[in-house]
């Protein structure tokens, strides 16, 4: 009994495990920061963050592979494509009732994934795309050399990606906090609470919502680029709606209307999701895979019961509920 339910704690003490968790947490911090500005600060329920992630990954890969665009330019291009797509979705649905926007974003993300699956000539279909990360591999080696020069070893070669993804994530948090404290951020919060009040004071609610969505798309695209670098391939399975929902778990755990909470939520969520791999239960692999989500679900339910504003959220700012 005890032996079959035991946690193989050995796995949890490995550097490789934690750098893997760290990279995924960094990627999902970026993804969920986009959700935070939409859901937590603008009051629009974006269910399509996985779609912007997919566009970021695919557009970057296609620009590098098919058009020989330098990596960093390709990243900028990918962000541009994601933002343009977000504007099309937003302009067609943000004027309508709030729930139409949610459905439109979910549908748009699925449409992106379907396209990736079926437009084989462009996206490689289910095979996916490879060979876009030559420039990154060089950079990664360079960073590893620097690290070993200062005596930091690297178990599985993930350290450079870990550093870069968290550097970008932290920069994003700082930038978003700065925006949130600005008059622009104030209008966003006003719209979140009462769109009509904001409009009656001369604020063009649609413009602010579109800008918020554009920022979410940018962060989503960036997370997609890092996900692609982490996997060294892109294929449609990486962008199932489940990615958006893990994003929401991260968001709710950390707390609405807190950017720092997003990073915390991402670390907790991915520690849980990855640690359950080491649970030694008499279950099949697919059952274990579902168990991971059951655990995250239970954690969220517990949180809702005892601290509905999330770990770092402010109760006074919970306006979505009422």
């Amino acid at each position: 009994m005890t032996s079959s339910f035991a946690l193989a704690l050995g796995g949890l003490t490995e550097v490789g495990f934690w750098s893997g968790v760290g990279v995924l947490a960094g990627i999902y911090t970026l993804l969920a920061l986009g959700l935070q500005i939409n859901v937590g600060f603008t009051g629009i329920l974006n269910f399509g963050q996985a779609g912007f992630m997919a566009i970021g990954a695919y557009a970057m890969a296609i620009l590098v592979i098919d058009f020989d665009v330098p990596f960093l330019l390709a990243v900028l291009g990918a962000i541009g494509v994601a933002v343009a797509f977000a504007m099309v979705v937003g302009m067609s649905s943000l004027r309508l009732r709030a729930d139409y926007f949610s459905i439109a974003t979910l549908a748009a993300a699925e449409a992106v994934r379907m396209f990736a699956q079926n437009a084989q000539g462009v996206t490689g279909g289910n095979q996916g795309l490879y060979g876009f990360d030559v420039a990154w591999a060089d950079a990664s080696r360079q960073i590893e050399e620097w690290l070993s020069a200062i005596g930091v070893g690297d178990a599985n070669g993930l350290l450079p990606l870990l550093l870069v993804v968290w550097l970008v994530a932290l920069l994003a948090i700082v930038a978003l906090r700065f925006l949130q404290r600005s008059p622009w951020g104030r209008v966003l919060r006003a719209i979140r609470e009462d769109e009509d009040a904001a409009r009656s004071l001369g604020k063009n609610a649609l413009r602010f919502r579109l800008q918020s969505l554009a920022i979410a798309a940018t962060l989503g695209a960036l997370s997609g680029v890092f996900l692609a670098l982490n996997l060294s391939f892109v294929n449609p399975q990486a962008f199932e709606p489940q990615a958006s929902f893990i994003g929401f778990a991260v968001l709710i755990l950390g707390g609405l209307a807190s950017y720092g909470g997003v990073a915390f939520g991402a670390l907790i969520t991915w520690t849980l999701l990855e640690a359950t791999r080491f649970v030694d239960l008499p279950l099949s692999d697919t059952q274990i895979a579902s168990l991971r989500f059951v655990l995250v679900g239970l954690l969220l339910i517990g949180l809702m019961a005892f601290r509905p504003q999330g770990v770092f959220g402010k109760r006074q700012e919970m306006v979505l509920g009422d």
Partner: peptide, 21 residues
């Protein structure tokens, strides 16, 4: 919002104070 910027501003029968701010 354009009307408000032109100088006609209104209040609401059910007050719209932004409570979370």
């Amino acid at each position: 919002h354009r009307i408000a910027r032109l100088g006609m501003v209104r209040t609401f029968q059910l007050t719209k104070a932004l409570s979370a701010m």
